[in-house]
Write a protein that binds this DNA or RNA. Structure first.
Lengths: 196, 196, 196, 196
DNA sequence: CATGAATGAGGCTTCATTCAT
DNA sequence: TATGAATGAAGCCTCATTCAT
């Protein structure tokens, strides 16, 4: 279960390729053959680096969750005031049209499958816990500094994640270039919700 | 394409059975055999009432969307003030623990598949359009009567749908009995968002 | 195994409908449902009049062979000289564009299936025996009257059937309106073959 | 669409196995499972070498037509006089009892299916065109050299193909050991037809 | 390490046939 | 007599997975 650098590199390449394909076609609609072709490797090669198709998917989600989580932490930590941190939180989720479309398509697959797959559910739980930690901290700071109204930080975190995800999912079925509208709306809703 | 009462009854039975299975195991994880066994009919029987597996799913989603939409309209129309209508809107979505869990599991699958299936996407578009019509009207009334602040009705409708869906999806991965918390939170967020 | 007049009428109707469908699509490409729809009866009805799909096909071929055989006998018997009888024989096979296309398409199916189905083979044997009897008689008369050269009547019968069938099958893949050319060619080949 | 030698070998093996099965049981009466078992491979293996069942059949017929056509050309080109070429043409078709029975059983299926399948029809057209080219040339030479009577070469080609096919098909339902009789009869009929 | 030929379980679908009405 | 709902056997095809090279 430990990998050399070269192996890690190859796994990364395969995961990235899978990410693109899942975004375009959905996990249950793509085959290992599809991944192999797009990645420019043989079918057998994939199963050399991943136990099976499921592990490839799980790895993809693991990586995805870790990336987004890290990104949020980094962006938030660079900000100072609670309002700036709220903005940073939203910036971390609303990155760009292309990135967000791919991300949320895969993310939807992830959520959908998590309901029926205990292996995936545990990433979800972890992911949501992290969200509570990060945004709970933002909320707590805002309340302490008197710039947010007095809500339970955990509730605020849940609202933040839900509003952002809800809007991003909704945006998937709207015009791509309304991205900024959705981003601003997310900020506005959270601002209303947290304002005194 | 017209059916007798008996046929409609049978189709309904099959669709309901499928609904339960999709909620439990997910769209692409169930087979016609599964549906047949659970419904207590033969495999061939399903294909006698539905062109193919896809049509069974599409019918399920069509019915689901129509039901929820009708429910919302009925509940909203029974209320008088904009605030009551907002509450009615949220009540229509947060029906009960059991109902909501099944519904949103299937709904998530629906959203996820809609990204890759044009046939499903059209229901999505229709569904979101109806949401805008219904909630846009609520918002418009509230604004005119001076109880809501002046937001674009369409934006309010998008926010309402997104907040409700976002929270319900989030709730799927939280404790079932926190249902009321999520429901109240939805109302709270929307109230903040619409308040002057 | 005995039928009332009404039953016979119904069987005849079903056989005729099947004949058309077999000509158009081939026996193994049509379903009982197809026959039922085209005949304007229910699927179950067909199996009320015929043991199973196979019996329907066998009955069709039986009828087909009997019809053509009777036709040949009638036409030949109305002629006087051996040459006229030869012409009558060919006329009986080359009836018309539409009739011949349908007939030979079904006939090809018949020949093709006869190779693998003993039930059908016996019709074939019977049919060819009748051909030998009928054309053998023509040849014999012609030889005795000195208008045909001295060939074995059975050989002449085999040649006659083969030439006619070979040309008709070939014509199926040529332009329909070259029907007369094929008919004349059949007569010409037989005339050459039988001339002194 | 290019294959390695090994792949070609495997495809050839599968096609030959299919050929035997089609001869014995007929086109629409054999399954991929039958082919797999007889060929000693798994069912999936066939679909690895052929897109689907249809492609297997089409390949079989393509190969069959190409083989017989090549054989005719080779044999004819080795002969000198028109009469010898006519004999070579007939020799090419009447190869041997065993070979001819298999061939014409498959060929009958081929003709029969060609009526209902446009993909197959195109091989038929090609095949008949080649026949016209080859035998038309023989006829033309014979006429020019004054050994055949003056007929249209194309007509002669059609007669040749029809007579040979008609007799071979007829032979399928006669005693196998009358093979030589049918062969001689074919030569005799053609000789009569072409003689001055 | 990497390949890709080969497998076979499992899914969807078709359709002849049965049978209650 | 006639219907057509219901069945289930059987076929085609997909594709994750194995394994010899």
């Amino acid at each position: 279960m430990t990998f050399t650098d070269k192996e890690l590199e190859k796994r990364k390449h395969l995961v990235k390729t899978t990410y693109k394909l899942v975004a375009d076609y959905g996990f249950s609609n793509i085959t290992l053959q599809d991944v192999a072709e797009k990645a420019g490797v043989s079918k057998g090669s994939i199963l050399y680096y991943f136990e099976n198709k499921d592990e490839l998917f799980v790895t993809l989600l693991e990586r995805m969750v870790n990336n987004i989580e890290r990104q949020i932490r980094v962006n938030v930590s660079r900000s100072n005031t609670p309002q700036e941190k709220l903005q940073a939180f939203i910036n971390s989720t609303f990155v760009g049209i292309k990135e967000n479309r791919d991300f949320y398509k895969v993310y939807l697959d992830f959520l959908s499958q998590s309901n029926h797959n205990d292996g995936l559910k545990k990433f979800n739980v972890y992911w949501y816990e992290q969200c509570v930690l990060v945004f709970g901290q933002i909320a707590k700071e805002g309340i302490e500094k008197g710039v947010f109204r007095n809500v339970a930080p955990e509730a605020a975190a849940i609202v933040a994640r839900s509003v952002v995800d809800g809007l991003c999912i909704r945006w998937l079925f709207d015009e791509p270039d309304r991205f900024e509208f959705y981003k601003e709306t997310a900020l506005q809703v959270m601002t209303c919700y947290l304002s005194k």
